[in-house]
């Protein structure tokens, strides 16, 4: 038994390095998507201390809107623009109807409110778009659909081009976001609000504008995630479960840290694939991906309660 746990998997990794690379690549791609969702969480959490449970459903909702608008006859890129408009309206509505009346309430109340929003969007999405699985308009958006075939060490490795595109686009998005947060007025206002609400308000930063902006950015991230994940697995409400995967990423990386979200996402994506393939399927009956990330995060948190990159928690009486 010990042999099976501690030796066999590593022997297998060594014997078939190309398969190991393939597993790692698959993990990397899903890790990127976890990281993107976690990024949406982090942005909103930093600027408003709201734990936004609706991020996952925003991914589904934006992807469904995109596919739905295209099905109505709009050209692909026009529907992307139109979807962005929809996401902006959504951000404004959420700010006005849900968040503004709840300013200053305890965190858990705001968290519950976002779950309320989630339910509302699920119902609305089902009524407008229907529950069946839809095909993402991958080729219409000009995303290549072929595959690179590599032969490392005489082995065989397939990299799907849409996955490569997703990785590149996600990288660009993160770079753009970091630049935006660091070098523009609006971006710095968001960070100021995250550091100290009261101080930010007193130097004239408008809470409402920033909240709409942050929720809109989260909407953009949701759309990118939706396109990338939709290209892999189709668009349906089942996508919502990947939102749960972003939660251990947040724990691992820290709720406030953008770097943490990215590194945590990649780590969890790759480790859970490795565990599933080399330990989960042969020893535990498979499907360990549903809980592995949570357990990993739980164990890490026992040693570092604020996550790997979170702000050090200082408590005073």
């Amino acid at each position: 038994m010990l042999h099976k746990i501690f030796i066999d998997p590593f022997v297998e990794m060594y014997m078939l390095p190309d398969f190991l690379l393939q597993v790692l690549w698959e993990g990397l791609v899903s890790g990127i998507l976890y990281a993107l969702i976690a990024l949406g969480f982090v942005l909103i959490f930093r600027s408003s201390r709201i734990f936004n449970f609706a991020q996952g459903i925003m991914v589904v909702f934006s992807a469904l809107t995109l596919v739905g608008l295209h099905a109505m006859g709009l050209p692909a890129w026009v529907s992307v623009g139109a979807t962005l408009v929809v996401m902006y309206i959504l951000a404004m509505t959420i700010e006005r109807v849900v968040l503004r009346p709840l300013v200053g309430q305890p965190d858990i109340i705001l968290f519950m409110a976002t779950i309320g929003v989630t339910l509302f969007l699920i119902g609305l999405g089902e009524i407008i778009f229907g529950g069946e699985n839809k095909v993402m308009i991958t080729s219409e958006l000009g995303i290549p659909t072929g595959a690179f075939e590599l032969f490392p060490w005489g082995g065989f490795l397939i990299l799907e081009q849409k996955d490569v595109t997703a990785v590149v686009v996600a990288g660009l998005l993160v770079a753009g976001l970091i630049a935006f947060l660091n070098y523009t007025r609006m971006g710095r206002a968001i960070r100021a609000l995250g550091d100290d609400h009261q101080a930010a308000l007193s130097v004239g930063i408008s809470l409402q504008t920033i909240w709409v902006l942050v929720w809109f950015i989260a909407g953009i991230i949701a759309l990118v995630t939706g396109i990338a994940w939709g290209a892999r697995a189709g668009v349906s409400f089942a996508l919502e479960v990947i939102a749960y995967k972003a939660l251990p990423v947040l724990m691992l990386g820290g709720l406030e840290s953008i770097t943490g979200a990215i590194i945590g996402g990649l780590m969890i994506g790759m480790l859970e694939k490795l565990f599933e393939i080399y330990w989960g399927q042969p020893l535990l009956g498979g499907n360990t991906e549903t809980w592995f990330a949570f357990m990993l995060a739980l164990i890490v948190l026992l040693f570092r309660p604020q996550g790997l990159f979170g702000e050090k928690i200082i408590e005073r009486v």
Binding site: D107, M251, N287, T290, W291, F294
Partner: peptide, 26 residues
């Protein structure tokens, strides 16, 4: 874990119980 972890971190930690136990039941 609640002895070390607080607030939302703990909430996510309890999700570990949620997903792990469901998997176990199956």
């Amino acid at each position: 874990p609640s002895l070390r972890i607080k607030g939302f971190y703990l909430a996510i930690a309890t999700l570990a119980a949620q997903f792990f136990l469901i998997w176990l039941f199956e």
